[in-house]
Structure formats: structure tokens, C-alpha cells
């Protein structure tokens, strides 16, 4: 079967490698792979999932993935959207979390957020709604710097 031979791990790895260079349009330090937006790679399609229901970046993300696939000569690969299981911040990889912290955004944790600059857990929430749907606004009570936190979701 030609199709079956096509879905080798090397093909999948190649597509994942391409997609690991597609940044999130709002938080460019992390890729669509880091965020857990890419659910699966099949021989005929890349399956993605939206993060927040109202995230305006959803369309931009799909367009960016399309462009990256086309550039790699993979125009035949379709992009499918899967709503279940619903995306949550648990889908963000360990590497993605570290990249967020280094970028100055506190990664989602079930515990109190830590200041991404000085590491202090002595922080306060300024606003539950931040500059994008996925973030809330906080302030470190030790170094006094304000910072964004990726909402635990």
C-alpha cells in the first residue's frame, strides 16, 4: 500500500520538524508544536486544535501552518480541525513552558504563579484578563515588575 508506506515515522518526523518552526503569532517564542496545537500528522492531513474558543490567532495559525507546509512542498497535506479532546494548558510541552518563562511569561501552573524575572512566588493578580485571551496580568511583590501569566486552563 503506497499510502501506508507514506506514513512512516520519518515522514511524520519531517512534518513535525517543519511545524516546530511555525511560531504562535501572539507569543512567537513558542511554536505550534510547543503549545500542543498540532494533534496528529497523518499521511493526508495535519490535525490541529484551537486553543481558546475566541482566540483571534486561530485563523492566523492555520494560515501560517499552510504556508509552512506549502513551502516544504507538502501542498497535498490538508489541515483538519479537531475539537475533542478540548485543548487545555496541560497540552503545552515542558520545553514550551521553559520557553515561556524565558520570554517573561509565567507558564501555567496549578499553584501560585512565580515571577518569571526573579522567581519569587510572592505575586498578586492585577487583572484576570490580559493582553490576549490566554493571559492574565500579575505583579511581583518583590521585584515589583509586572508580568503576564499564561492562564491555567
Amino acid at each position: 500500500m503506497v499510502a501506508a508506506a507514506h506514513t512512516t515515522s520519518s515522514f511524520k518526523d519531517r512534518v513535525l520538524e517543519i511545524l516546530s518552526h511555525v511560531p504562535d503569532p501572539e507569543i512567537p517564542c513558542v511554536s505550534v508544536i510547543d503549545l500542543g496545537i498540532v494533534r496528529d500528522v497523518r499521511d493526508d492531513a495535519v490535525v490541529i486544535t484551537p486553543t481558546y474558543t475566541g482566540c483571534p490567532a486561530t485563523l492566523a495559525i492555520e494560515a501560517d501552518i499552510r504556508t509552512a507546509l506549502d513551502k516544504a512542498g507538502l501542498s497535498a497535506l490538508k489541515i483538519e480541525t479537531a475539537l475533542t479532546p478540548p485543548w487545555s494548558t496541560d497540552w503545552i510541552s515542558a520545553e514550551g513552558r521553559e520557553k515561556l518563562r524565558a520570554y517573561g511569561i509565567a507558564p501555567p501552573l496549578r499553584t501560585a504563579p512565580q515571577c518569571p524575572r526573579c522567581g519569587s512566588a510572592h505575586t498578586e493578580e492585577l487583572s484576570r484578563f490580559g493582553s490576549t485571551p490566554c493571559k492574565s496580568l500579575h505583579r511581583c511583590l518583590d521585584c515589583r515588575e509586572p508580568f503576564d501569566r499564561f492562564k491555567c486552563h
Binding site: Y52, T53, G54, P56, T58, R128, F129, G130, S131, P133
Partner: peptide, 17 residues
């Protein structure tokens, strides 16, 4: 400002739904 961001975010969620 915080309220402006909040209401806009709530609106975005709703339009997404």
C-alpha cells in the same frame, strides 16, 4: 484599561462560541 481588556476578552470568547 483592565476593564476594557476584560470586556473585550469576554466578547471574543462569546464570538468564538
Amino acid at each position: 484599561l483592565e476593564v476594557d481588556l476584560s470586556l473585550a476578552n469576554v466578547g471574543l470568547d462569546l464570538i468564538g462560541q
